Amino acid sequence: MTESVVRALYGKAKSLNLSSKKINVVPECVSRLPNLSVLLLKNNSISALPNELLYLHHLVELNLGNNALKELPAVLGHLESLKKLYLFSNQITAVPPDVIDGLQNLVVLNLNHNHIRRLPPEIKSLTRLRHLSVLDNKLEEVPAELGHLTSLTEINFTSNHLPSLPVQLYQCKELTKLHVARNKLTSLPEGIKALTKLQVLDVAGNKLSMFPVEFDSLPLKELYHEDNRFVRCEPMSSVQDVEVLMLKELAARFVLQQDRDMSSLVHRMLPYYPPLPELLANGSCCALCLNPFLTTWLECVHFVSVNKETKIRSSKTIPVRAFLCSYKCFNTEGHSYYGVARK
């Protein structure tokens, strides 16, 4: 190991590999390699990093995988040039906000196989991040601030304890791969159609009953959804033919309908009542008649055949949620929507 460092010192090395050297401390002389851009320290017993590493101003890649770190060393927050950080297979329990704040050039962050329960809201500062992997941890929630990371192309939250995902995740419109298998998800947020570049989705081993509205519009090439609790198709007739709408709902439907007409008085006046557009933004559209409504009047499901070019492990037919505005629409003949019976 010493020979490797000595050669690096004399050769003004840009890369140093001290992986699998059975070391428990980083040699102090490593900090005397000002040109170092890649430092590989995986498969050792390192439990801390020397503060002197902050002098590695040109360090771009740091691999500390499979060591004995129990926390993210504070010195990492000073490595402002770092683009790739691998911390898999340690004993890390938390991600300090102050460390995250100093890593604004990160492109790859790998925290797999640790004991992390939460990611801090400050993760929003990693605006250049493209690959985020926190596989096999103890995550209990995903911060809404993740939606600020609009450069993300791949997220892996497989094997955690997540009961839900934030809708802000759909702001990451460059996302091509989303892995959330083996969590505790009971649903995916509505609006997933915004992920127009999503090619791989793994939701296997959760508690999903159906997929969100317009899920079938995604350009998926791979879909893994086995071992969930998807609804089954067991047709039954509707027993309610007349619905009574609240005044708020009736008014909202009228305003939403009028707002579609750019020349209408309602459309022109809405900007003068700021709370209204915000409220009406929660509206939806009937899958049959296409008329707008504010609240989910009738949750339905239709069974969609997955694109034959999509790689899939189980059934090629999946349940996709749909919203109908009324029982009048639901009772119309000739459609393929089914009501959802809850136990």
Rank of each mutant, 00 (worst) to 15 (best):
S284C: 13
P292I: 01
T296M: 14
F293S: 11
A281L: 15
E278L: 13
L294K: 01
Q258C: 04
L279F: 01
C286P: 03
C289D: 06
C300K: 01
H302M: 10
L265C: 05
P275G: 03
E299S: 13
M269G: 06
G283C: 10
Y272V: 09
D259S: 14
N291Y: 11
S264D: 08
M269D: 08
L294T: 01
S284Y: 08
R260A: 00
Y273N: 08
S284H: 14
S264R: 02
H302E: 08
F293D: 07
S284M: 11
Q257T: 15
M269N: 10
P274W: 11
Y273L: 14
P277K: 02
N282D: 13
R260M: 01
C286L: 04
N291F: 13
D261E: 08
H302N: 14
M269T: 09
L290Y: 10
S264G: 14
S264T: 02
T295H: 14
L290C: 14
P274R: 10
A287F: 00
P292R: 02
W297N: 15
L280S: 00
P292V: 03
E299G: 06
E278P: 06
L298D: 01
D261R: 09
C300I: 03
S264N: 11
H302S: 13
M269H: 08
S264L: 11
Y273A: 12
W297R: 15
D259M: 10
P271T: 09
E299P: 13
L288F: 00
F293M: 14
C285K: 15
P292F: 02
C286V: 04
A287S: 13
V301E: 01
T295I: 10
P271D: 08
L265F: 02
N291E: 15
C285G: 07
T296I: 14
N282E: 13
F293Q: 08
P277Q: 06
Q258S: 09
P271C: 08
P277N: 00
P292C: 03
Y273T: 08
